[in-house]
Amino acid sequence: MAVAKFSVARLALTDFRSYGHLRLETDARPVVLTGANGAGKTNLLEALSFLVPGRGLRNARLGEVARREAGEPEDDSGRAWAVAAGVRGPQGVVDLGTGRDAAGLAAGGRERRVVRIDGETVRSQAELALHFAAVWLTPRMDRLFSEGGSARRRFVDRLVFGFDAAHAGRVAAYEQALRERARLLREAASGRRTDGAWLNALEDTMATRGVAVAAARKDMAARLAAFCAESPGPFPAAGIGLAGAVEGWLDDGPALAAEDRFRAALAAGRAADADSGTTGVGPHRSDLVVHDVATGVAAGQCSTGQQKALLIAIVLASARMQALERGSVPLLLLDEVAAHLDQRRRQALFEELLGLGAQVWMTGTETEVFRPLAGEAQFFRVADAQVAPAS
């Protein structure tokens, strides 16, 4: 089967982070961005990460990524920003655009992200997953296995987006119902009258969408585990799985039975959830569980270097899986990853990326680190939010 790959043909930024205006054209080869810390390299990767559903690689709010002049307050809520790109994929070149709707916000509306595909405004950012796939690694993710589970859930969801575009919509619907149910329970606890029928409807949405979200994550982890077991070269084999109440119900029986159990648990937990201000059960409580197959040690107990190696191995495995199962390779965004690997693992990483044929965008402060990619990649120098081909 011929394997296509997602790549960026052109990228245009307007008032995004440190960039007032930028236009960059690239071919389908890997992209290496070098420059001093603070030059704007990570901002380019973050812009690309907004071409898939979600809040980008920094998990930022819409207002946080708008460009600000020196001295402007950080709570400036009126500034717009835009990211536009021509992306190559199995469907040919597609024009994707997204940004902040500052006009609607100024008119008194709620903060909204606008998404356009081939010039047409679409209803939901979830539709981006129909046309583009990207996975990233950043220095902040070095703590993925030692901090709270929310970042791990987002990581799994990004992997699922590459196979199931509808997953983004299910996650959004579940989270919206989760927030609305919590609001109703707070009102009920304060003595205000609430709509019981609406509460039932919200819990039904949470049950149906939540079980679907959990099933998709669980299926992804099960399929990916086989690819992780074949980790290349010096990268460790990672054992992975999903742990949570809903996942356990799916182990015990069919999805419809899990939905019934979820509805019953939500109804029974209303008083406790109202008191705690949280929802005690659901896929928002699930977690990605990872261990080093060779040693059996949980990822959270491994050294920082071994945790990074496990994370790289999982990302590479997901790209191989997508190439085999979908016939396409996602865009890979690797921020300051290569510099912190020893020479053996760095060489293995480069070889794996070239073997995949992926367009990978990599950042670093020193060009020397990427010397093995000379002739295989396109090199750019970033300085003061300006990007130019490296000499």
Rank of each mutant, 00 (worst) to 15 (best):
T42K: 02
G169R: 11
L356M: 12
A390I: 08
R320K: 10
F227C: 02
V211I: 02
A274C: 01
L159A: 04
Q378I: 08
E127A: 15
A265D: 00
R345C: 11
A222W: 03
V171N: 02
Q91M: 03
V293G: 06
T295R: 07
D76C: 00
R143T: 14
E368K: 12
R152K: 04
H21R: 09
A129P: 11
F235L: 05
G108A: 02
A166E: 15
A294P: 06
D335T: 08
W249L: 02
S286N: 11
H167L: 03
A102Y: 00
N37I: 08
M206T: 06
T304A: 15
Q125R: 10
Y19R: 03
Q307T: 05
F163A: 15
A358G: 07
A188Y: 08
T138Q: 11
D275V: 00
E111S: 14
A323S: 02
A245N: 06
L33F: 13
G119I: 11
L310Y: 05
E147Y: 07
L128D: 07
M362V: 06
R100Q: 09
R217W: 01
V281C: 01
G104I: 08
E230S: 14
S49Y: 07
A348P: 05
A299F: 04
R223I: 07
E368P: 04
R68Y: 08
E25W: 00
F132P: 14
Q386I: 09
C228K: 06
A172F: 01
D384V: 07
V83Y: 07
G109Y: 01
A388E: 15
V32Y: 05
A173Q: 12
M141F: 00
L349I: 09
G244H: 11
E72S: 06
A85F: 08
N200V: 02
L199H: 02
R158C: 03
Q301I: 10
Y19S: 01
P53T: 11
G97H: 06
L178F: 08
Q306T: 14
A173W: 03
L199W: 06
G327P: 10
K308I: 11
G86L: 03
A39P: 05
D142W: 10
A82Y: 09
T304K: 05
A172H: 07
F163T: 04
R116W: 12
S18F: 02
F350Y: 09
R181Q: 04
H291L: 06
L96S: 00
G233A: 14
M321H: 12
I312Y: 05
R67N: 02
